[in-house]
Write a protein that binds this DNA or RNA. Structure first.
Length: 754
DNA sequence: CTCATTAACGTTTTT
DNA sequence: CGTTAATGAG
């Protein structure tokens, strides 16, 4: 195929090798900005173009919908939409959800199974904990959910987990896990983890089915292999066992999801699994300036655990990075906004050329505010996904329930939405009755007339049942869009919101409308007969990022996790403070992951990098001093300048000098703000002296959270919380100088400050 | 049963 | 600080 040959000429030698080595196990170590997606898409095109494989024989697994979508589009560009349409390109979750739809019966599920996201699963776990009498105060549902999810990620099933539970938490979690699995089965529902685990169970039960897929998917490709967990590892190994045409692409330096069960040893040990594997390194970076790359390389070099590689670029050297040292988060945000405005004027950049990264979503607020006051358009990614909004989830729950009447969780969600007089008390009564009668809740709803229930309730239930039945009727022959439209019509959802006449209602109105048009688009693009099921399931696996329009001219705000895989001409990495970034620094492993995250942040930048930190930051509502991040110290000082034009090197020398002077003067060193260029000003000393003690108050004083207090040893602070009463009363207090302490009030001898 | 006010709570990341 | 869960009045 001439087009394919032409395409290969555009690749460098390593990329070409990665594309053309189609047979046998291959691991591509793709450094940041080295053209990874290009390699995968060309490889697919090459396989098809040279007739080594048909499109339907290729399975390409990605980590995010966005990556899948991009890959699909680029393959289509190379081959034409028609040639690419039989490809299985998608996330692990969506591809296996699709596969499971075909075989659900064998696992005791129907093809219309519901997919529960984290929220749904959490609700169910809370419910189960209630049933088991586990106190949610002692053991949070989130913890239990985490434990269960981790077990699933490692392909440890409930019974096995129960038999190997080691401590109290695991023991309780095991009880919940067992019942949780039962309940999912009863509801005909799978959670996200199940989408990975159930295929393994299926393949173990039915080797013939495994063989079918081994034969069908002659070529297996896995993107972001460093992010795969144990379950994903197992299932890919099973699928590749026969033909062994497995090509994994990844970068251990960008592994940032270990908290979610990603197992970096999957990529580190690939060669152990496949001793004959061909290892190909993509080391030429096409994205960033040399300066940016040098900074990043030096940062990542401080990690012990990693595969050897050396990234280089032939791009221009570029400007040094700029470091902003700010008083507080507002000035940090302001500085960023000003810089954006100036760069737009001076260098002709557009809004969309800028990205502002932060470690935690909470940090976006200050930045948004500053951008707003400067009149700079922006978009925030990821914070809360469109599909996680209550109103959207409620509508989706309707669709799920129409498809899957066994799904009690969805039923509970919609039975009184919009409010139709079936409140909590009624629902509890109905559930108890259903239990007594040995019926499912919905069976009882359908036969409500036969029981001695308040007539108003019976008629409300009847109305609800008729709604569900008519939607079910429509779903048999009409598209997902038509079902959603009919749901809106019958429930008068939009009208009800309009009548509310509040701004919140207006937003929800808009969201529902957007969902409707999304359904229409989906139905237009996927006109198969089973479309409501496909629609509901893909919505469950959807997150927002991918369907926000990327072409609008706005500054992008996002967490660094969300930034992976993206690139921007100008990047701001904010909040470089200890305990913020790095957020977790308890052990080396966590710290190395934070460092990889920093590496990811730096390598997103094409032309210019700005780094910043604030010496004070609001946390839980009050201003706290922060220490500059150790990551700043790890940077190559020659490649970073401050606003004043001084290099980081000079600054470090000054810092050293200053510490020496302070030591000689026998002053207690204060340990933040140490990069300040105004260190000579004697003022700075004063600002840390606590105020003289406020008038004392009687010992009977009741202390409340939020009160400002002063302590002899610890100085000024603010009460975070108070526990207990009388002589035993303790308060958790955040002290400006000493940090968080828990004190027995009786002995603390606090004074209240106005 | 619904709406209001209040208390508690937490801020990592995503399929 | 801002959001959500829990409680109490109407």
């Amino acid at each position: 195929m001439s087009t394919t040959a032409l395409n290969l000429d555009q690749l460098n030698a390593a990329q070409r090798e990665a594309v053309a080595t189609t047979e046998g196990p291959v691991m591509v170590i793709a450094g940041a900005g080295s053209g990874k997606t290009r390699v995968i898409t060309h490889r697919i095109a090459y396989l098809i173009g040279t007739r080594r494989a048909r499109a339907s024989e290729i399975l390409a697994l990605t980590f995010t919908n966005k990556a899948a979508k991009e890959m699909k589009e680029r393959v289509e560009k190379l081959l034409g939409a028609d040639a690419a349409k039989d490809l299985w390109i998608g996330t692990f979750h969506s591809n296996f959800a699709r596969l499971l739809r075909q075989h659900a019966e064998l696992l005791g599920f129907s093809t219309n199974y519901s997919i529960y996201d984290q929220d749904d699963a959490n609700r169910l776990i809370k419910e189960i904990m209630g049933e088991l009498g586990i106190n949610a105060q002692t053991l949070s549902p989130d913890t239990i959910q985490n434990v269960i999810s981790n077990a699933k990620n490692k392909f440890v099933l409930a019974s096995q987990f129960a038999s190997q539970a080691r401590d109290y938490v695991e023991d309780q979690a095991a009880k919940v896990y067992l019942r949780y699995a039962e309940r999912l089965q009863k509801n005909n529902a799978l959670d996200f983890d199940d989408l990975l685990i159930k295929p393994i169970e299926l393949f173990l039960q039915r080797p013939d089915i495994l063989e079918h897929y081994q034969h069908r998917f002659q070529y297996l490709m896995i993107d972001e292999y460093q992010d795969t967990n144990r379950a994903q590892y197992i299932v890919s190994k099973m699928l590749a066992a026969k033909h062994r045409n497995i090509c994994v692409v990844g970068d251990d330096a960008q592994s940032i999801y270990s908290w979610r069960g990603a197992d970096i040893s999957n990529i580190l040990n690939f060669q152990g699994d496949y001793p004959d594997a061909k290892i190909i390194r993509l080391e030429e970076n096409y994205r960033s300036t040399q300066t940016i790359l040098n900074l990043a390389n030096k940062v990542i070099a401080q990690n012990k655990e990693q595969l050897k590689k050396r990234l280089f670029t032939r791009n221009e050297e570029g400007e040094p990075a700029t470091l902003f040292i700010c008083e507080d988060e507002r000035r940090e945000a302001d500085k960023i906004a000003q810089t954006i405005r100036n760069l737009k004027l001076a260098k002709g950049y557009q809004n969309s050329d800028f990205a502002v990264f932060y470690r935690t979503n909470a940090q976006s607020r200050a930045i948004e505010e500053a951008l707003r006051t400067h009149g700079i358009p922006y978009q925030v990614f990821g914070a809360l996904s469109f599909y996680k909004l209550k109103e959207i989830k409620d509508v989706v729950a309707y669709l799920r329930f129409v498809l899957n009447p066994r799904d009690e969780e969805s039923l509970l969600r919609v039975i009184n939405f919009p409010a139709r007089g079936i409140g909590e008390a009624s629902v509890e009564k109905l559930r108890a009755l259903a239990n007594e009668e040995g019926l499912t809740l919905y069976e009882l709803v359908c036969g409500a007339a036969r029981y001695d229930l308040p007539p108003r309730l019976v008629s409300a239930l009847n109305e609800f049942r008729m709604l569900i039945e008519s939607l079910e009727q429509i779903s048999r022959h009409a598209s997902a869009y038509e079902v959603v439209a009919e749901l809106y019509r019958q429930t008068r959802l939009l009208e009800l919101l309009k009548e509310e006449n509040s701004p919140e209602a207006k937003t929800r109105f808009d969201n529902l409308q957007e969902f409707l048009s999304f359904a229409r688009r989906f139905s237009d693009e996927n006109p198969d007969e089973n479309s409501l099921n496909a629609f509901a399931q893909s919505v469950a696996l959807m997150s927002e990022t991918e369907d926000k329009n990327g072409d609008s001219n706005k500054v992008s705000l996002m967490t660094i996790h969300a930034a992976k895989g993206l690139e921007f001409p100008v990047v701001f990495v904010t909040g470089l403070e200890e305990k913020l970034f790095p957020l977790h620094l308890d052990d080396r492993k966590q710290l190395e992951e934070e460092r990889r995250l920093f590496y990811v942040a730096l390598t997103r930048a094409e032309k210019k990098l700005y780094l910043s930190y604030a010496k004070n930051r609001y946390r839980f509502g009050n201003l706290q001093p922060s220490l500059k991040s150790r990551f700043i110290d790890e940077l190559d000082g020659e490649l970073v300048v401050t606003e004043g034009g001084k290099s980081l090197c000079d600054l470090r020398a000054e810092e050293k000098e200053r510490k020496r002077i302070i030591r000689d003067d026998d002053h207690a060193p204060d340990d933040f703000g140490d990069l300040s260029e105004r260190w000579r000003e004697p003022k700075s000393k004063k600002s840390f002296v606590p105020k003289p003690a406020a008038p004392s108050v009687p010992s009977e004083t009741t202390y409340r959270a939020g009160m400002r207090v002063s302590h002899k040893m610890f100085g000024r602070g603010k009460i975070i919380s108070v526990q207990g009463a009388g002589d035993d009363a303790k308060a958790k207090i955040y002290f400006e100088r000493a940090g968080e302490k828990t004190l027995v009030l009786k002995f603390a001898n606090l004074t209240v400050i106005e």
